[in-house]
């Protein structure tokens, strides 16, 4: 019985840790894309995403 409970607890801890690591990685993926679209300082990136930056109220020029 003790073994069964501890294995359940171990599984839950592993699952929680795994979910957090994966959601953090997905969060980072989203932030990198948003930086590229909304903040990248290169002139080419600015000109390509110009109307999107204005429409989404990102600081522009």
């Amino acid at each position: 019985m003790t073994t069964r409970v501890s294995s359940h607890q171990a599984l839950q801890v592993t699952t929680t840790t795994s979910v957090m690591a994966q959601t953090c990685a997905a969060l980072l993926f989203g932030l990198i894309i948003l930086f590229a679209v909304g903040f990248a300082p290169m002139g080419v990136a600015h000109n390509a995403a110009h109307d999107a930056r204005h429409s989404l109220a990102f600081p522009c020029h």
Partner: peptide, 18 residues
């Protein structure tokens, strides 16, 4: 640019939802 921005927003929202 809008598709990329929306993808970024959706990834962040889905990560937080999860």
């Amino acid at each position: 640019a809008n598709v990329l921005a929306s993808t970024g927003f959706a990834a962040i929202m889905l990560a937080l939802m999860n």
